[in-house]
Design a protein around this nucleic acid. Structure first.
Lengths: 215, 215
DNA sequence: GCAAATTAATGATTTATTCAAG
DNA sequence: CTTGAATAAATCATTAATTTGC
Protein backbone atom coordinates (compact mmCIF):
# COMPACT_ATOMS: atom_id res chain seq x y z
CA UNK A 1 0.00 0.00 0.00
CA UNK A 2 1.37 3.37 -0.91
CA UNK A 3 2.32 5.69 1.89
CA UNK A 4 -0.27 8.28 0.92
CA UNK A 5 -3.13 6.04 1.79
CA UNK A 6 -1.33 4.01 4.38
CA UNK A 7 -3.50 2.43 6.98
CA UNK A 8 -1.18 3.16 9.80
CA UNK A 9 0.56 6.15 11.17
CA UNK A 10 4.11 6.63 10.12
CA UNK A 11 5.89 9.03 12.41
CA UNK A 12 8.20 11.63 10.94
CA UNK A 13 11.71 11.84 12.36
CA UNK A 14 10.81 15.01 14.21
CA UNK A 15 7.73 13.49 15.72
CA UNK A 16 9.71 10.50 16.76
CA UNK A 17 12.44 12.59 18.25
CA UNK A 18 10.05 14.62 20.28
CA UNK A 19 8.22 11.58 21.52
CA UNK A 20 11.45 9.96 22.57
CA UNK A 21 12.49 13.12 24.25
CA UNK A 22 9.29 13.18 26.22
CA UNK A 23 9.73 9.55 27.08
CA UNK A 24 13.23 10.18 28.30
CA UNK A 25 11.78 13.09 30.20
CA UNK A 26 9.66 10.67 32.11
CA UNK A 27 6.31 10.68 30.40
CA UNK A 28 4.93 7.19 30.31
CA UNK A 29 1.18 7.19 30.29
CA UNK A 30 -0.02 10.61 29.21
CA UNK A 31 -3.57 11.38 30.12
CA UNK A 32 -6.15 12.63 27.70
CA UNK A 33 -5.28 16.28 27.85
CA UNK A 34 -1.60 15.57 27.62
CA UNK A 35 -2.19 13.43 24.60
CA UNK A 36 -4.23 16.13 23.07
CA UNK A 37 -1.51 18.70 23.51
CA UNK A 38 1.20 16.39 22.32
CA UNK A 39 -0.84 15.51 19.29
CA UNK A 40 -1.59 19.11 18.46
CA UNK A 41 2.05 19.87 18.79
CA UNK A 42 3.29 16.99 16.72
CA UNK A 43 0.74 17.55 14.04
CA UNK A 44 2.90 20.43 12.94
CA UNK A 45 5.37 17.89 11.65
CA UNK A 46 2.95 15.64 9.90
CA UNK A 47 -0.32 13.86 10.10
CA UNK A 48 -0.97 12.38 13.48
CA UNK A 49 -3.86 11.45 15.69
CA UNK A 50 -4.30 11.12 19.39
CA UNK A 51 -4.47 7.38 19.21
CA UNK A 52 -1.06 7.32 17.59
CA UNK A 53 0.41 9.14 20.55
CA UNK A 54 -1.48 6.90 22.89
CA UNK A 55 -0.25 3.76 21.21
CA UNK A 56 3.25 5.05 20.86
CA UNK A 57 3.69 5.55 24.56
CA UNK A 58 2.06 2.26 25.33
CA UNK A 59 4.24 0.35 22.92
CA UNK A 60 7.39 2.22 23.73
CA UNK A 61 6.95 1.70 27.42
CA UNK A 62 6.28 -1.98 26.96
CA UNK A 63 9.19 -2.49 24.62
CA UNK A 64 11.66 -0.59 26.68
CA UNK A 65 10.60 -2.66 29.60
CA UNK A 66 11.06 -5.87 27.70
CA UNK A 67 14.36 -4.69 26.31
CA UNK A 68 15.50 -4.00 29.83
CA UNK A 69 14.28 -7.34 31.04
CA UNK A 70 16.26 -9.09 28.36
CA UNK A 71 19.28 -7.07 29.24
CA UNK A 72 18.92 -7.68 32.94
CA UNK A 73 18.68 -11.38 32.48
CA UNK A 74 22.27 -11.46 31.30
CA UNK A 75 23.65 -8.80 33.56
CA UNK A 76 25.56 -9.24 36.80
CA UNK A 77 23.53 -8.65 39.88
CA UNK A 78 25.31 -5.44 40.85
CA UNK A 79 24.24 -3.65 37.74
CA UNK A 80 20.73 -4.81 38.19
CA UNK A 81 20.52 -2.99 41.46
CA UNK A 82 21.84 0.13 39.79
CA UNK A 83 19.22 -0.02 37.09
CA UNK A 84 16.47 -0.43 39.60
CA UNK A 85 17.59 2.62 41.48
CA UNK A 86 17.70 4.69 38.33
CA UNK A 87 14.18 3.57 37.64
CA UNK A 88 13.07 4.56 41.08
CA UNK A 89 14.64 7.95 40.66
CA UNK A 90 12.71 8.59 37.49
CA UNK A 91 9.62 7.46 39.21
CA UNK A 92 10.00 9.94 41.99
CA UNK A 93 10.63 12.76 39.62
CA UNK A 94 7.36 11.95 38.06
CA UNK A 95 5.68 12.16 41.38
CA UNK A 96 6.79 15.67 42.07
CA UNK A 97 3.56 17.16 40.92
CA UNK A 98 1.91 14.91 43.35
CA UNK A 99 4.16 16.00 46.15
CA UNK A 100 3.49 19.65 45.50
CA UNK A 101 -0.24 19.32 45.19
CA UNK A 102 -2.53 19.91 48.08
CA UNK A 103 -3.68 16.36 47.91
CA UNK A 104 -2.18 14.18 50.52
CA UNK A 105 0.83 12.51 49.00
CA UNK A 106 1.05 8.77 48.77
CA UNK A 107 2.54 7.20 51.87
CA UNK A 108 5.53 5.80 50.11
CA UNK A 109 6.55 9.23 48.96
CA UNK A 110 5.94 11.00 52.18
CA UNK A 111 9.36 10.24 53.39
CA UNK A 112 11.20 11.54 50.39
CA UNK A 113 12.03 15.02 49.33
CA UNK A 114 13.45 15.15 45.90
CA UNK A 115 15.11 17.72 43.74
CA UNK A 116 12.40 19.13 41.55
CA UNK A 117 14.71 20.39 38.85
CA UNK A 118 14.86 16.82 37.80
CA UNK A 119 17.00 15.35 35.11
CA UNK A 120 14.24 15.41 32.60
CA UNK A 121 15.33 18.81 31.58
CA UNK A 122 18.72 17.48 30.64
CA UNK A 123 18.08 14.22 28.95
CA UNK A 124 20.73 12.09 27.46
CA UNK A 125 20.90 13.72 24.06
CA UNK A 126 18.71 13.91 21.04
CA UNK A 127 18.45 11.46 18.22
CA UNK A 128 20.44 12.04 15.09
CA UNK A 129 17.67 12.10 12.56
CA UNK A 130 16.75 15.70 13.07
CA UNK A 131 19.45 16.73 15.43
CA UNK A 132 19.94 19.99 13.68
CA UNK A 133 16.59 21.15 14.84
CA UNK A 134 17.00 24.12 17.06
CA UNK A 135 16.73 22.58 20.40
CA UNK A 136 14.44 23.09 22.05
CA UNK A 137 12.01 25.75 22.89
CA UNK A 138 9.36 23.26 23.66
CA UNK A 139 11.35 21.79 26.44
CA UNK A 140 10.49 24.77 28.50
CA UNK A 141 6.99 23.57 28.55
CA UNK A 142 7.73 20.01 29.27
CA UNK A 143 7.07 20.51 32.95
CA UNK A 144 3.52 21.29 31.97
CA UNK A 145 3.30 17.74 30.87
CA UNK A 146 4.19 16.46 34.23
CA UNK A 147 0.81 15.84 35.55
CA UNK A 148 -0.25 12.71 37.26
CA UNK A 149 0.65 9.74 35.20
CA UNK A 150 -1.63 7.36 36.93
CA UNK A 151 -4.57 9.14 35.50
CA UNK A 152 -6.35 6.56 33.49
CA UNK A 153 -7.62 7.13 30.03
CA UNK A 154 -11.14 6.00 30.53
CA UNK A 155 -11.63 7.96 33.65
CA UNK A 156 -10.52 11.01 31.80
CA UNK A 157 -13.12 10.73 29.12
CA UNK A 158 -15.86 10.95 31.66
CA UNK A 159 -19.22 11.39 30.12
CA UNK A 160 -17.57 12.35 26.90
CA UNK A 161 -16.12 8.97 26.39
CA UNK A 162 -19.05 8.36 24.16
CA UNK A 163 -17.95 11.16 21.93
CA UNK A 164 -15.38 8.94 20.45
CA UNK A 165 -18.10 6.67 19.24
CA UNK A 166 -20.38 9.23 17.78
CA UNK A 167 -19.00 8.97 14.33
CA UNK A 168 -17.46 6.07 12.59
CA UNK A 169 -14.48 6.22 10.39
CA UNK A 170 -15.77 7.24 7.05
CA UNK A 171 -13.19 9.77 6.08
CA UNK A 172 -10.45 7.62 4.68
CA UNK A 173 -6.88 8.59 5.31
CA UNK A 174 -6.54 12.03 3.85
CA UNK A 175 -3.65 13.53 2.02
CA UNK A 176 -0.38 12.62 3.58
CA UNK A 177 2.41 14.07 1.51
CA UNK A 178 5.25 11.77 2.33
CA UNK A 179 5.37 8.98 4.77
CA UNK A 180 8.22 8.76 7.19
CA UNK A 181 10.04 11.83 6.06
CA UNK A 182 9.88 15.46 6.93
CA UNK A 183 7.26 17.13 4.83
CA UNK A 184 7.42 20.53 6.37
CA UNK A 185 10.30 22.87 6.85
CA UNK A 186 12.06 22.37 10.11
CA UNK A 187 11.50 25.12 12.51
CA UNK A 188 11.91 25.84 16.13
CA UNK A 189 9.18 24.00 17.93
CA UNK A 190 6.39 26.15 19.14
CA UNK A 191 5.40 26.25 22.72
CA UNK A 192 2.42 24.37 23.93
CA UNK A 193 -0.30 26.78 24.77
CA UNK A 194 0.24 27.63 28.37
CA UNK A 195 -3.20 26.97 29.66
CA UNK A 196 -3.66 26.57 33.33
CA UNK A 197 -5.65 23.38 33.01
CA UNK A 198 -8.29 24.74 35.35
CA UNK A 199 -8.34 21.65 37.40
CA UNK A 200 -9.03 19.61 34.35
CA UNK A 201 -5.97 17.54 34.91
CA UNK A 202 -6.46 16.99 38.54
CA UNK A 203 -8.82 14.12 38.52
CA UNK A 204 -7.85 10.72 39.75
CA UNK A 205 -5.84 12.13 42.59
CA UNK A 206 -7.34 9.52 44.78
CA UNK A 207 -5.98 6.68 42.76
CA UNK A 208 -3.46 4.45 44.30
CA UNK A 209 -0.13 5.83 43.21
CA UNK A 210 1.42 2.44 43.60
CA UNK A 211 -0.19 1.60 40.31
CA UNK A 212 1.93 4.10 38.50
CA UNK A 213 4.34 2.45 36.24
CA UNK A 214 7.53 3.86 35.02
CA UNK A 215 10.20 1.84 33.51
CA UNK B 1 -19.86 5.18 49.62
CA UNK B 2 -23.52 5.68 49.06
CA UNK B 3 -24.88 4.45 45.78
CA UNK B 4 -25.91 7.90 44.64
CA UNK B 5 -22.35 9.11 44.35
CA UNK B 6 -20.81 5.81 43.57
CA UNK B 7 -17.67 5.90 41.54
CA UNK B 8 -18.53 2.97 39.42
CA UNK B 9 -21.43 1.91 37.34
CA UNK B 10 -23.88 -0.37 38.98
CA UNK B 11 -26.07 -2.09 36.42
CA UNK B 12 -29.76 -2.39 37.07
CA UNK B 13 -31.27 -5.86 36.80
CA UNK B 14 -32.85 -4.94 33.49
CA UNK B 15 -29.63 -3.65 32.06
CA UNK B 16 -27.88 -6.76 33.19
CA UNK B 17 -30.50 -8.98 31.75
CA UNK B 18 -30.37 -7.32 28.38
CA UNK B 19 -26.62 -7.41 28.30
CA UNK B 20 -26.60 -11.08 29.12
CA UNK B 21 -29.21 -11.70 26.51
CA UNK B 22 -27.06 -9.99 23.93
CA UNK B 23 -24.08 -11.97 25.06
CA UNK B 24 -25.98 -15.16 24.76
CA UNK B 25 -27.06 -13.93 21.37
CA UNK B 26 -23.46 -13.92 20.34
CA UNK B 27 -22.29 -10.36 20.79
CA UNK B 28 -18.78 -10.35 22.12
CA UNK B 29 -16.92 -7.26 21.07
CA UNK B 30 -19.42 -4.65 20.00
CA UNK B 31 -18.01 -1.92 17.85
CA UNK B 32 -18.44 1.74 18.52
CA UNK B 33 -21.79 2.16 16.89
CA UNK B 34 -23.13 -0.96 18.48
CA UNK B 35 -21.99 0.23 21.85
CA UNK B 36 -23.66 3.51 21.24
CA UNK B 37 -26.94 1.93 20.43
CA UNK B 38 -26.76 -0.48 23.29
CA UNK B 39 -25.94 2.34 25.65
CA UNK B 40 -28.76 4.50 24.39
CA UNK B 41 -31.09 1.62 24.81
CA UNK B 42 -29.97 0.65 28.26
CA UNK B 43 -29.96 4.19 29.48
CA UNK B 44 -33.69 3.89 29.63
CA UNK B 45 -33.24 1.64 32.62
CA UNK B 46 -30.71 3.70 34.48
CA UNK B 47 -27.58 5.69 34.22
CA UNK B 48 -25.03 4.16 31.94
CA UNK B 49 -22.18 5.18 29.71
CA UNK B 50 -20.62 3.67 26.65
CA UNK B 51 -17.54 2.66 28.51
CA UNK B 52 -19.63 0.62 30.90
CA UNK B 53 -20.98 -1.37 28.03
CA UNK B 54 -17.54 -1.72 26.57
CA UNK B 55 -16.08 -2.94 29.83
CA UNK B 56 -18.98 -5.19 30.54
CA UNK B 57 -18.51 -7.15 27.35
CA UNK B 58 -14.78 -7.27 27.80
CA UNK B 59 -15.05 -8.54 31.35
CA UNK B 60 -17.90 -10.87 30.69
CA UNK B 61 -16.18 -12.44 27.75
CA UNK B 62 -12.97 -12.89 29.68
CA UNK B 63 -14.70 -14.34 32.69
CA UNK B 64 -16.87 -16.70 30.76
CA UNK B 65 -13.79 -17.90 29.00
CA UNK B 66 -11.96 -18.45 32.22
CA UNK B 67 -14.98 -20.12 33.76
CA UNK B 68 -15.09 -22.47 30.80
CA UNK B 69 -11.39 -23.12 31.01
CA UNK B 70 -11.70 -24.08 34.62
CA UNK B 71 -14.59 -26.33 33.80
CA UNK B 72 -12.82 -27.94 30.89
CA UNK B 73 -9.81 -28.74 32.95
CA UNK B 74 -11.85 -31.22 34.93
CA UNK B 75 -13.99 -32.53 32.15
CA UNK B 76 -13.61 -35.71 30.17
CA UNK B 77 -12.16 -35.28 26.74
CA UNK B 78 -15.35 -36.15 24.88
CA UNK B 79 -17.25 -33.26 26.37
CA UNK B 80 -14.44 -30.92 25.58
CA UNK B 81 -14.83 -31.64 21.91
CA UNK B 82 -18.54 -30.99 22.19
CA UNK B 83 -17.96 -27.65 23.83
CA UNK B 84 -15.54 -26.63 21.17
CA UNK B 85 -18.01 -27.41 18.46
CA UNK B 86 -20.71 -25.41 20.15
CA UNK B 87 -18.32 -22.53 20.32
CA UNK B 88 -17.54 -22.82 16.68
CA UNK B 89 -21.20 -22.84 15.84
CA UNK B 90 -21.76 -19.59 17.67
CA UNK B 91 -18.79 -18.19 15.95
CA UNK B 92 -20.12 -18.94 12.53
CA UNK B 93 -23.48 -17.49 13.31
CA UNK B 94 -21.70 -14.31 14.14
CA UNK B 95 -20.00 -14.38 10.81
CA UNK B 96 -23.16 -14.52 8.82
CA UNK B 97 -23.15 -10.85 8.11
CA UNK B 98 -19.71 -11.34 6.81
CA UNK B 99 -20.75 -14.14 4.55
CA UNK B 100 -23.55 -12.14 3.05
CA UNK B 101 -21.52 -9.03 2.45
CA UNK B 102 -19.89 -8.32 -0.85
CA UNK B 103 -16.52 -8.43 0.77
CA UNK B 104 -14.67 -11.61 0.17
CA UNK B 105 -15.36 -13.87 3.08
CA UNK B 106 -12.56 -15.13 5.29
CA UNK B 107 -11.00 -18.31 3.95
CA UNK B 108 -11.92 -20.38 6.93
CA UNK B 109 -15.55 -19.63 6.38
CA UNK B 110 -15.60 -20.12 2.67
CA UNK B 111 -16.25 -23.76 3.02
CA UNK B 112 -19.23 -23.47 5.27
CA UNK B 113 -22.78 -22.54 4.57
CA UNK B 114 -24.75 -22.04 7.69
CA UNK B 115 -28.32 -21.47 8.57
CA UNK B 116 -28.76 -17.76 8.86
CA UNK B 117 -31.78 -17.86 11.08
CA UNK B 118 -29.31 -18.58 13.77
CA UNK B 119 -30.05 -19.60 17.28
CA UNK B 120 -29.48 -16.14 18.59
CA UNK B 121 -33.07 -15.42 17.98
CA UNK B 122 -34.02 -18.13 20.38
CA UNK B 123 -31.56 -17.88 23.20
CA UNK B 124 -31.64 -20.12 26.16
CA UNK B 125 -34.13 -18.16 28.21
CA UNK B 126 -34.09 -14.96 30.16
CA UNK B 127 -32.76 -14.38 33.63
CA UNK B 128 -35.08 -14.41 36.57
CA UNK B 129 -34.43 -10.93 37.89
CA UNK B 130 -36.87 -9.22 35.59
CA UNK B 131 -38.35 -12.21 33.89
CA UNK B 132 -41.78 -10.70 33.95
CA UNK B 133 -40.71 -8.14 31.45
CA UNK B 134 -42.62 -8.57 28.28
CA UNK B 135 -40.25 -10.48 26.24
CA UNK B 136 -39.01 -9.23 23.98
CA UNK B 137 -39.71 -6.72 21.34
CA UNK B 138 -36.14 -5.68 21.12
CA UNK B 139 -35.05 -9.11 20.13
CA UNK B 140 -36.43 -8.42 16.75
CA UNK B 141 -33.73 -5.93 16.25
CA UNK B 142 -30.93 -7.97 17.59
CA UNK B 143 -29.86 -8.94 14.11
CA UNK B 144 -29.02 -5.31 13.59
CA UNK B 145 -26.36 -5.78 16.17
CA UNK B 146 -24.79 -8.53 14.23
CA UNK B 147 -22.20 -6.57 12.51
CA UNK B 148 -18.61 -7.48 12.36
CA UNK B 149 -17.35 -8.28 15.78
CA UNK B 150 -13.73 -8.03 14.96
CA UNK B 151 -14.05 -4.33 14.44
CA UNK B 152 -11.72 -2.78 16.88
CA UNK B 153 -12.62 0.08 19.07
CA UNK B 154 -9.76 2.30 18.16
CA UNK B 155 -10.26 1.91 14.50
CA UNK B 156 -13.85 2.88 14.91
CA UNK B 157 -13.09 6.18 16.50
CA UNK B 158 -11.25 7.28 13.42
CA UNK B 159 -10.46 10.92 13.51
CA UNK B 160 -12.93 11.34 16.28
CA UNK B 161 -10.96 9.29 18.65
CA UNK B 162 -9.65 12.57 19.89
CA UNK B 163 -13.12 13.64 20.83
CA UNK B 164 -12.96 11.46 23.81
CA UNK B 165 -10.07 13.50 25.06
CA UNK B 166 -11.47 16.90 24.45
CA UNK B 167 -12.94 17.29 27.85
CA UNK B 168 -11.85 15.89 31.11
CA UNK B 169 -14.17 14.54 33.72
CA UNK B 170 -15.31 17.53 35.63
CA UNK B 171 -18.95 16.68 36.03
CA UNK B 172 -18.94 14.45 39.06
CA UNK B 173 -21.32 11.56 39.18
CA UNK B 174 -24.73 13.11 38.85
CA UNK B 175 -27.94 12.11 40.47
CA UNK B 176 -28.46 8.40 40.40
CA UNK B 177 -31.70 7.58 42.17
CA UNK B 178 -31.02 4.09 43.32
CA UNK B 179 -28.09 1.89 42.63
CA UNK B 180 -28.64 -1.62 41.47
CA UNK B 181 -32.37 -1.53 41.56
CA UNK B 182 -34.98 -0.60 39.06
CA UNK B 183 -35.64 3.08 39.21
CA UNK B 184 -38.01 3.27 36.34
CA UNK B 185 -41.18 1.37 35.72
CA UNK B 186 -40.65 -1.76 33.76
CA UNK B 187 -41.91 -1.57 30.28
CA UNK B 188 -41.63 -3.38 27.04
CA UNK B 189 -38.26 -2.65 25.63
CA UNK B 190 -38.29 -0.27 22.74
CA UNK B 191 -36.83 -1.14 19.44
CA UNK B 192 -33.48 0.09 18.46
CA UNK B 193 -33.88 2.68 15.77
CA UNK B 194 -33.86 0.78 12.54
CA UNK B 195 -31.23 2.75 10.75
CA UNK B 196 -29.66 1.26 7.72
CA UNK B 197 -26.14 1.86 8.94
CA UNK B 198 -25.25 3.60 5.70
CA UNK B 199 -21.99 1.86 5.47
CA UNK B 200 -20.99 3.27 8.80
CA UNK B 201 -20.54 -0.13 10.28
CA UNK B 202 -18.68 -1.64 7.46
CA UNK B 203 -15.19 -0.63 8.30
CA UNK B 204 -12.56 -3.16 9.18
CA UNK B 205 -13.82 -5.69 6.74
CA UNK B 206 -10.26 -6.35 5.79
CA UNK B 207 -9.25 -7.47 9.22
CA UNK B 208 -8.24 -10.97 9.77
CA UNK B 209 -11.32 -12.75 11.02
CA UNK B 210 -9.16 -15.34 12.66
CA UNK B 211 -8.65 -12.81 15.39
CA UNK B 212 -12.28 -12.82 16.25
CA UNK B 213 -12.89 -14.33 19.57
CA UNK B 214 -16.08 -15.87 20.66
CA UNK B 215 -16.31 -18.04 23.60
C1' DG C 1 -31.59 -8.53 64.24
C1' DC C 2 -27.49 -5.84 63.07
C1' DA C 3 -23.14 -4.03 62.32
C1' DA C 4 -18.20 -5.25 61.86
C1' DA C 5 -15.36 -8.42 59.42
C1' DT C 6 -14.56 -11.38 55.58
C1' DT C 7 -15.25 -13.09 51.20
C1' DA C 8 -16.99 -13.17 46.52
C1' DA C 9 -18.26 -10.55 42.26
C1' DT C 10 -17.37 -7.56 39.11
C1' DG C 11 -16.37 -2.76 37.26
C1' DA C 12 -12.21 -0.40 35.74
C1' DT C 13 -7.06 -0.27 34.37
C1' DT C 14 -2.83 -1.76 33.15
C1' DT C 15 0.35 -5.05 31.15
C1' DA C 16 1.47 -8.75 28.04
C1' DT C 17 0.78 -10.83 23.83
C1' DT C 18 -0.35 -11.06 19.20
C1' DC C 19 -1.15 -9.57 14.45
C1' DA C 20 0.37 -7.43 10.48
C1' DA C 21 2.27 -3.30 7.63
C1' DG C 22 6.39 -1.84 5.72
C1' DC D 1 13.05 -7.06 12.01
C1' DT D 2 10.87 -3.13 13.72
C1' DT D 3 6.84 -1.19 15.29
C1' DG D 4 1.90 0.59 14.86
C1' DA D 5 -2.44 -1.39 16.10
C1' DA D 6 -5.47 -4.38 18.57
C1' DT D 7 -6.87 -7.95 21.73
C1' DA D 8 -6.46 -10.89 25.75
C1' DA D 9 -4.83 -11.65 30.31
C1' DA D 10 -3.69 -10.04 34.68
C1' DT D 11 -4.42 -6.90 38.12
C1' DC D 12 -6.46 -3.47 41.01
C1' DA D 13 -10.34 -1.56 43.61
C1' DT D 14 -15.04 -1.05 44.97
C1' DT D 15 -19.35 -2.86 45.78
C1' DA D 16 -22.51 -6.81 47.16
C1' DA D 17 -23.00 -11.05 49.75
C1' DT D 18 -21.97 -13.61 53.51
C1' DT D 19 -20.42 -14.83 57.82
C1' DT D 20 -19.53 -13.97 62.54
C1' DG D 21 -19.91 -12.39 67.30
C1' DC D 22 -22.77 -10.04 70.07
Amino acid sequence: MSPSNSTRWCPTPEQLMILEEMYRGGIRTPNASQIQRITAHLSFYGKIEGKNVFYWFQNHKARERQKLRRKLSKQPYQQQLLQEQLCLHRCHNQENKFLSSNESPPPALHQLSLDKSADYLHPGGVGSAAAHMTSCTWKRDLPNMYELQNTSMMRSYGDDWMMMMLKMRDAGPTHYPSCCSSNRPLKTLELFPITTQNGKDHQATTSNPSRNSYL
